[in-house]
Nucleic acid binder design. Structure first.
Length: 315
DNA sequence: AAGTACCTCAACCGCTTCCAC
DNA sequence: CGTGGAAGCGGTTGAGGTACT
């Protein structure tokens, strides 16, 4: 680029910040704001380059930073967003307002990435690494393959909903809310993460055949709506023939009619989603179904979904 | 107790993006 | 539209801490 880095100037300090330097920077920014980072150091009495000051402020001194251990919810959010956004740490950090991109990046590299690898997933693509796993059993391979298929479709849908949400937000700003006669029938909660979390956090746990499974007892069926025309929907099965959930409790079937717990919106389940194998009892053969309404059904074994340490969905 | 390996995370480096002119 | 300066971003490093032998 031909331009000398600002930190190469003579006399500028590098390395760890002292408490005195922190105090100077904090006091200056709190009183004057940072304005131009390049111009700040001499004004604040610091022998640092502006870049170093900005980094110290954004990653450490900013008052709205949450420090310490990441919660399970935060971990899930990071994994979900990483699957969607890749290594775009600042974009991921924008969904975790009190965490910095640097902190999230470090946490990913030191914890989450390793966890995915341990689970046999490629931390870049979030898809199963069949060869790396060395899984010789055809059934395992098939499961992972289905999972990858499902994951791929899910990511596609997520990317679409992000785009659509942005468009919707823009158009809703343009159009007055009162002119709602023509407003889309899309439910209000389009945030995919909220929908999933809202669905799963109400789950209850039971150990089945040595594996920890979770089932939503409040609603036998969980739904995720991706778009206006409902062309991508996720479902968790229940025992249709016995009308019982995973705990053996009686449940109401609602006859093709299911409710999104977050949106209080009901949908009619298309017949295409009710295909054999979906409601085949509980245990290792339960499946999560994903239908793109284009004649494609994606599914994965329930254990793959409930496979994380806390029994939460692995996304 | 000493040496070594491994882990964590603050900070740096270099590139890209943004924006004013 | 092109240019240059500043901010932002993501990859990487290395000091300090901890666990293990």
């Amino acid at each position: 680029m031909g331009r000398s880095p600002c930190c190469d100037k003579e006399g500028l300090k590098k390395g760890p910040w002292t408490p005195e330097e922190d105090q100077k920077l904090l006091a200056y920014v709190q009183e004057h704001g940072h304005g131009s980072w390049r111009a700040l150091p001499p004004k604040a009495g610091l022998q640092r380059c502006g870049k170093s000051c900005r980094l110290r402020w954004t990653n450490y001194l900013r008052p709205d930073i949450k420090r310490g251990k990441f919660s399970l919810q935060e971990e899930q959010t990071i994994i979900q967003l990483h699957a969607l956004l890749g290594n775009r740490w600042s974009a991921i950090a924008s969904h975790l307002p009190k965490r910095t991109d640097n902190e999230i990046k470090n946490y990913w590299n030191t914890h989450l990435k390793k966890r995915l690898v341990k689970m046999g997933l490629d931390p870049t693509t979030h898809k199963p690494k069949n060869h790396a796993l060395g899984c010789s059993q055809p059934k395992q391979i098939a499961n992972l393959s289905h999972m990858a298929q499902w994951e791929s479709a899910r990511l596609e849908a997520e990317a679409r909903i992000v785009r659509e949400s942005k468009q919707l937000a823009t158009s809703q700003l343009m159009n007055s809310a009162s002119a709602s006669g023509l407003v889309s029938s899309r439910p209000p909660c389009l945030d995919i993460l909220k929908v999933w979390q809202g669905t799963w956090t109400r789950s209850s746990r039971k150990d089945v055949a040595g594996a920890s499974l979770f089932a939503n007892l409040e609603s036998p069926t969980s739904i995720l709506n991706f778009s206006d025309n409902m062309n991508a929907v996720g479902l968790i099965g229940y025992q249709e023939d016995q009308n019982k959930d995973i705990m053996g409790n009686s449940v109401e079937l609602h006859d093709h009619h299911i409710t999104d717990p977050n949106c209080s919106t009901s949908y009619t389940v298309p017949d295409s989603m009710r295909f054999p194998g979906f409601l085949d009892g509980f245990g290792h053969d339960d499946n999560v179904v994903f239908d793109d309404n284009k004649g494609n059904n994606y599914w994965t074994n329930i254990l793959n979904v409930f496979n994380s340490p806390m029994g939460s969905p692995v996304f």
